[in-house]
Amino acid sequence: MTQTVRVKTLMPPGHVRTPAYLRGKIGVIERSLGAFPNPEDLAYGHSAAAKPLHRVRFTMAEVWGDAAENPDDTLDAEIYEHWLDPCDAP
């Protein structure tokens, strides 16, 4: 997985663990956590394939633009790899 990633902009109606405020935002993988059963399957009682999970760090400037309290503050979130696309650094 590349270090710089963009969160997919998809907005499916079901149970997912990718917050809306991070969709489309570019961050850097802070650490990779291994693979975990996909919550999108577990939520509906299905057997779940293990999916790679990463901690991604975003700057507040990237997430909120000019509305950020302090552009250099950061936001870390755990995002499943199937929600991430490789991308160039912003």
Binding site: G14, H15, P39, L42, A43, Y44, G45
Partner: peptide
């Protein structure tokens, strides 16, 4: 019988 994700899914 269920998972924490199932708990959350119904709460949502």
């Amino acid at each position: 019988y269920f998972t924490v994700d199932g708990l959350r899914r119904v709460l949502e």
